[in-house]
C-alpha cells in the first residue's frame, strides 16, 4: 500500500518544524524546510515513512547549516525572526528572546551526537529509529539520551541562572 503522505503531513508536521527549528534556528526557514522535506519524499514509498521524513529533514538541516556558515548571516536570521514575531508585550517579548537564546546556548553546548539524539527523541522517534538515524548501537541510545538530557538541563539552568519555569511546568 503506498504511503499516505497527506496523513503523514498532518501527523508529523509539528514534530518536523520543532526538529528543524532547533537545527536552523529560524521559524520561517524551518517551515519551508518541512515542505521541502515532503516534496522530496512524495515520489518515494519507504517502509518507515516517519523515519524517512526525519532523515530527509536532518540532511536538509545539515545542508542549511553549511550554507548558513558560508553566508555568515545565521545570527541575522535569528534577529530578524525574533523581531518579526508577534509581540504580546515588551516584557514578554524580552523574556521570550532570552529563553530562546538560553535554549540555543544549552543545545549548542552539547556534542553533535547528543544533540541529534535529543532532538530525534523530542521529535518522537523510537529507540531503533534514533539508533539508525544517529548511527548508534541500539543499546547506546538510552545511555546517550540520559546523558544528553542531563547536560541540557544543566546547561540551560546555568544559562538562566535558575531553574526554568518550563521545568516546573
Amino acid at each position: 500500500m503506498p504511503t499516505n503522505w497527506e496523513q503523514q503531513y498532518r501527523e508529523t508536521y509539528d514534530d518536523l518544524v520543532r526538529f528543524l527549528h532547533r537545527k536552523v534556528w529560524d521559524s520561517d526557514r524551518a517551515h519551508d524546510l518541512v515542505q521541502e522535506t515532503f516534496v522530496r519524499a512524495l515520489n518515494h514509498d519507504p517502509e518507515n515513512p516517519r523515519a524517512f521524513l526525519f532523515t530527509i529533514a536532518a540532511n536538509l538541516a545539515r545542508d542549511e547549516a553549511r550554507a548558513a556558515v558560508r553566508r555568515k548571516h545565521h545570527l541575522e536570521l535569528i534577529t530578524v525572526e525574533t523581531g518579526e514575531r508577534s509581540d504580546p508585550g515588551p516584557a514578554e517579548a524580552l523574556e521570550e528572546r532570552e529563553r530562546e537564546a538560553a535554549v540555543r546556548r544549552a543545545l549548542e553546548s552539547l556534542s553533535e551526537r547528543d544533540r541529534d539524539v535529543l532532538l530525534l527523541w523530542d521529535a518522537g522517534l523510537s529507540y531503533p529509529e534514533i539508533a539508525e538515524q544517529a548511527g548508534l548501537a541500539l543499546g547506546a541510545v538510552g545511555t546517550t539520551l540520559a546523558r544528553a538530557r542531563h547536560r541540557l538541563v544543566e546547561a540551560y539552568e546555568a544559562a538562566e541562572g535558575k531553574a526554568p519555569d518550563v521545568a516546573r511546568g
Partner: peptide, 12 residues
C-alpha cells in the same frame, strides 16, 4: 520532563 519542556519552549 525538564529537557522536553526546554526543547518545546519558545517556539513561535
Amino acid at each position: 520532563e525538564t529537557a522536553r519542556a526546554i526543547l518545546r519552549a519558545g517556539l513561535p
